[in-house]
């Protein structure tokens, strides 16, 4: 019994160590490679540009719903004017980084895990290795470096679109004065809120992309099934683990920032 606890603890610790090692080596090897900019641009396209539509749509609807919900709650207290504060602060501090990260995991993380998993199964990763190209540096490094840029940028888009969504329901549909709404948005948000949101976004980016790539890269060691099933299992696990990691990290960072 005690041995089981001990061995599983060691397993978990080793897994975390392995993931951290994997991430650091990927970035290091990427820095040693050629054509870094070209690879980085492709990775930004994959993680950033292709996620813009989904992030924009989710951001807009989140803002719309928050405008609606908060309006009726605040109206009971007679504080409709505070709608701007409520929408802007909750988006910038919490919902923006978290929902953006979850959307990117759904869009880019799952495809990343399955793509690398298939390349592993097809021996393409071994082929890279025999050519003297480090597969981590080639496949994972550029994406990790891109995630540091893409997550904060997409979070910023999400925040702005969400605040605009709150304006649409709050001012256009319901009767909060537009000037009051925007004035409250501008006066309530502090630089610390924005800064905290971006820190969260960057950390989530690093975490999720690392987890997805790691699951894909070691799909032959970590999955209980082989072949195509192994890859699909890896993709599922990658999404589940990254989503949990995002929420857990969110709690940790929030408690440190407050």
């Amino acid at each position: 019994m005690i041995r089981t606890i001990g061995s599983s603890t060691l397993c978990v610790v080793a897994e975390f160590g392995g993931i951290a090692n994997f991430a650091v080596l990927s970035i290091y090897e990427f820095c040693c490679q050629r054509r870094r900019l070209a690879k980085w641009v492709l990775a930004v396209h994959e993680i950033g540009v292709r996620c813009v539509p989904i992030v924009a749509i989710v951001g807009l609807f989140t803002g719309l719903v928050m405008g609606l919900q908060l309006y009726y709650t605040l109206a009971r207290l007679g504080a409709e004017a505070a709608l701007g504060d409520a929408v802007a602060l909750s988006l910038i501090r919490e919902l923006g980084p978290v929902l953006t990260a979850l959307m990117i995991v759904g869009q880019a993380g799952s495809s990343l895990a399955s793509e690398i998993g298939i390349q592993r199964n097809d021996e393409q990763i071994d082929a890279l290795q025999t050519m003297g190209i480090d597969a981590r540096g080639y496949l994972v490094g550029p994406r990790l470096c891109a995630s540091f840029i893409c997550f904060p940028i997409l979070t910023a888009c999400f925040d702005l679109i969400g605040i605009f969504g709150g304006y649409l329901t709050g001012s256009v549909l319901l009767n909060v004065d537009a000037g009051v709404y925007w004035n409250h948005v501008f006066s309530s948000v502090q630089f610390a809120d924005i800064y905290g949101g971006f820190i969260k976004a960057a950390v989530f980016g690093f975490l999720t992309i690392t987890i997805c790539a790691y699951r894909g890269f070691y799909t032959h060691l970590k999955s209980s099934s082989r072949g195509v099933r192994g890859v699909s299992e890896s993709a599922t696990r990658a999404v589940v683990f990254s989503s949990v990691a995002v929420l857990a990290a969110d709690y940790l960072i929030t408690s440190f920032l407050i």
């Binding site: 090897e29 390349q119 097809d122 021996e123 393409q124 071994d126 082929a127 890279l128 290795q129 025999t130 050519m131 003297g132 190209i133 480090d134 597969a135």
Partner: peptide
């Protein structure tokens, strides 16, 4: 590491080709 052993340039042709599809 993926550095090639001993600085010798070698190639490997895989049974299933392992082309980048």
């Amino acid at each position: 590491t993926a550095r090639q052993p001993g600085g010798v340039c070698f190639s490997y042709m895989f049974q299933n080709n392992a082309l980048f599809d």
